[in-house]
Structures are given as C-alpha cells and as structure tokens.
C-alpha cells in the first residue's frame, strides 16, 4: 500500500478525520479569503478619509459612521430597501406562472425548451441587456414608438406624471429602474420556485382533488404552501441582487443614488473607501436579517 492510499484508507476508517481533511481547504478559503475580507471591510469602515487630499487615514474613528447617518444617506438606504422589496414581490408574481407551467405541465422537449428559455436571458451579457433596456425605455425609444403606433402615448404620460415614481422619461424614472431590475433578476426567481414545485408529490394533489377540493383550494392549501420555500429562496436572490446592484440604476434611473451606487461612487469616484465600506456593512446587516428570516421559512432546503 502506498503512502497516499494508506492515508486515504486511514481517513475512511476515521470518518471524523476524513470530514476534517475534506473541509479544510474550502473552509480555509472561505475563512481566510471571504470572512477575512469581510473583517477587513468592517475595519475599513472605522477609518476615515482626508477630504482634501483624498487619502485614507488609517486610524480608528467613528466619523465615517456619523456621516453614514446623515439624512441623505438614510434616504439612500430606505430607497434601496423599498426598491428591493417591490422588485422581489413583482418578480415572484411574474415568475410563479412560468415556474408553475414548467413544473406541472411541460414535459420532455417542452420542458427542456422552458429551461433554456429561462437560462438564456440569465446568461447573456448582463451589461448589454441593461443597455438594450435603455433603448426600450428612452423618450424616443421603443415603448414610445409602439405607444405612438397604438395612440397610447397618453398612457405613458399618465404613468410618468405619478409623483415620485414618475419622471421626465421612463428611463429617467423609478418605473424604469424597477422594470429593468425585475427583468434582470426574474430567472433567479423562476428556477427555485420551479424546483420546489417539482418536489410537490402528485399523489398529494390527487388526494386533495379526490377529497373534493376545488382546484383553487388545492392550490391555496397544498401547492402554494409547499412551494413557498422556493419563493423565499428566489427572493433571497432578487432582494440581495437588487440591494447591491450599481449598474442598473446608473444607466436607467434618475440620479438618486441606491446603496450599490453609493458604494461604487464613494470608493471609485471619491476614493472614500471607509464610507463605501460603511454602506456595505449596512447591506450586510440587512441581508443578515433577511437570511435569518429566510432560514426559518425553510428557504435553504429549496436552494
């Protein structure tokens, strides 16, 4: 027996050792690279920036956090939270029928087609997709062009005149930002819902029907509760991705910053890494809370 295989056999005989040996490399990676970096991030947020020269002073201070709680920055955080929540709810509503159809009715070739139809947009250059939306939503873009054709310009005008979510053009408004977010993250919602719907045993549905439940009752009392963890799992993605994105609101939006943009702007444009780090810590805190709730709702088993 050679030395390495002797070692391998030893590991197998002692399962604890095997587990340890297997876990060591990935844990080392995640703890050193990932958690280590998260720690560095926390540390950064306790530094501050020298305003004039733009250099970071590596000394402990709470000045950055004091600045974080300025009204304008609180606004940024709230705005992002609301957007993430609305995008998540809308994605779930749009995704459910697609996932439901794919899971319950599509078979064979149709099923493969559905899968690819969801995966294609997910994997085709995120940036180019966003720019395509800019063209769709522009004042002289495709939506307006179609609206003009159908004499529906008034509808767009009415939509844009809604206070706060409207604006001078779809691509300069929260409506536009919202649409693009829903578009970009929708596949992340469809896939987990579909997975959890596929796990609903058909016998259960039959039993429900046999016992005299209407289709609506079956859906409400059997299918939806069982698929709910999938919705929550999907919502982790849509919420988290919206929370951290800085490219969508920059290209389609109204110059009111979201958390991701604030991080990007502060670290890239103003070089204020400490403040950018503090904003990121806020996002971490929000996601931490979200994940804790999601775990309670069983989302991790549906991932």
């Amino acid at each position: 027996m050679t030395a390495p295989s002797a070692l391998a056999s030893l590991l197998f005989r002692k399962p604890g050792l095997l587990t340890f040996a297997l876990l060591a490399p990935p844990i080392f990676w995640l703890v050193v690279v990932y958690l280590g970096s998260l720690f560095a991030l926390m540390l950064q947020s306790f530094y501050a920036l020298d305003d004039f020269s733009g250099l970071i002073l590596h000394e402990f201070t709470l000045a950055t956090y004091a600045h974080l709680f300025d009204e304008a920055n609180i606004q940024i955080i709230l705005r992002t939270l609301i957007m993430a929540a609305v995008v998540t709810v809308a994605s779930a509503i749009i995704a459910f029928p697609i996932a439901y159809y794919a899971a319950r009715f599509a078979r064979g070739k149709m099923k493969a087609l559905f899968y690819l139809a969801v995966m294609m947009p997910l994997w085709s250059s995120y940036l180019v997709k966003i720019y395509a939306w800019k063209l769709i939503l522009a004042k002289e873009g495709i939506v307006s062009w179609v609206a003009n054709l159908l004499h529906g310009q008034w509808l767009i005008d009415a939509l844009l005149s809604i206070p706060s979510i409207g604006g001078s053009s779809l691509s300069f408004s929260y409506i536009g930002t919202f649409l693009v977010f829903v578009y970009i993250w929708l596949p992340y919602m469809i896939l987990p819902i579909q997975t959890s719907l596929e796990r609903v045993p058909y016998s259960l549905i039959e039993a429900s029907t046999d016992l005299g439940a209407t289709p609506a009752q079956t859906f409400r009392n059997i299918i939806f509760p069982l698929a709910f963890p999938g919705v929550v799992a999907g919502s982790i993605f849509t919420f988290s991705l919206t929370l951290g994105d800085y490219i969508v609101p920059q290209i389609v939006g109204n110059s009111r910053l979201m958390i991701g943009q604030a991080v990007y702007t502060f670290q890239g444009t103003s070089g204020d890494i400490p403040l950018a780090a503090a904003f990121t810590v806020v996002a971490m805190f929000i996601m931490g809370t979200y994940l804790t709730v999601a775990k309670r709702l069983g989302a991790f088993d549906a991932l």
Binding site: K134, L135, A138, K139, E140, G141, G167, S168, S169, S171, F172, G253, N254, S255
Partner: peptide, 20 residues
C-alpha cells in the same frame, strides 16, 4: 427640473438625441 444628471459625455450625447 432635471430628469437625470449627466456624468458621462457619451451618455449626455444620447440624452440629447433620445431623451428630449
């Protein structure tokens, strides 16, 4: 009055062309 602030020269060119 401002729909969106401009930061990028190319984007402003687009805005004059497509965004009124």
């Amino acid at each position: 009055l401002v729909g969106r602030y401009w930061g990028d020269a190319a984007v402003q060119v687009d805005d004059f062309k497509n965004e009124g």
